[in-house]
Design a protein around this nucleic acid. Structure first.
Lengths: 157, 157
DNA sequence: TAGCGATTCATCCTAAAGTGTGAATTTGAT
DNA sequence: ATCAAATTCACACTTTAGGATGAATCGCTA
């Protein structure tokens, strides 16, 4: 609890400490120079410098960092799918179910089985099952082939 | 040209001006309080406050803003694969080599790394290296994503 | 010729994908 | 209500993919 207090009020404590030290220095300077009244400007200059330094330090420490936003426009290529017609006959012919289609589409989007599982709120094992079924029904060995074939057959985008 | 000089050195001029004004104030204060020697601390305090203020102001004005980059994705529609033109600019921009392109194309054809290795008469490890490089250069995590992105960027069929 | 990028290959390790089998539950149609 | 298909999940296991690192070779170029 003492630790959290210290860390939370670190800056304030530092400020207080600095002020105390500076007051000491001030007093010392006063004693030193009180004899030679003509050293007025030197005294004032020292104080000015010290406190300006303190001010700069304080401002840098306490001020929220300024943010300058740089906006970079990045081109993202998107395939025009306006003239896409879903080949439902092919889907039916292959005997692919709705859920399997969902998984197939997400596979084509480049998601991992784990990500698909999270997206569809089911377990990884379930997606593996669907995935296996899709691969078998499309008569392919890997998901990359499945995606390629599915796109060729126009059963997904 | 005068204008640019002014704008360029605005802060420095401001600082100089402030200093001049403060010196005046100092002199005035000196004249005012030189009679009552006991007002030493008040004088010092005023200087301290003024210069601390100046320090804070200076720091806030001169501190460099932290840059924050925001990337905005801009959609760009590309043509259908029927009138496919290889996007060589993109390939060069991404720094993908000839051999890596070979591997990428075969990956898109749904071949496994082993099959690609056999096709190109090199070892499996070599294909893994190329594959990893391609994934990194395309900034994706899986080969399905790589294929999808590469097709979108029109760097493969 | 010294340096650089590209290509090749290796080893070790982790993560993801895929196979096979079995089973509980849900849903739709007869 | 019942049967078939669909959906869900588990577990054990194999294969494939991917990451990190180091290193040898080759061709091109300053």
């Amino acid at each position: 609890m003492v630790k959290t207090f210290l860390s939370k009020n670190k800056l304030i404590l530092l400020y207080g400490l600095s002020s105390a030290i500076l007051l000491f220095v001030l007093k010392w300077l006063e004693l030193k120079f009180v004899i030679m009244q003509n050293a007025f400007e030197i005294y004032a200059g020292c104080i000015a410098l010290l406190f300006m330094g303190l001010g700069i330090w304080l401002a840098l420490k306490l001020s929220k960092p300024k943010k300058e936003t740089i906006i970079i426009e990045k081109e993202v290529f998107i395939k025009d799918t306006s003239d896409f017609v879903l080949n439902e006959k092919e889907i039916e012919k292959l005997g692919i179910s709705k859920r399997e289609m969902d998984v197939l589409q997400l596979m084509a989007d480049g998601l991992s089985n784990q990500e698909i599982a999270e997206r569809l709120f089911v377990s990884l094992n379930t997606i593996k099952t669907h995935s296996s079924n899709v691969l078998e029904k499309l008569d392919v060995k890997r998901r990359t082939q499945a995606v390629e074939k599915a796109k060729r057959l126009a059963i997904i985008h």
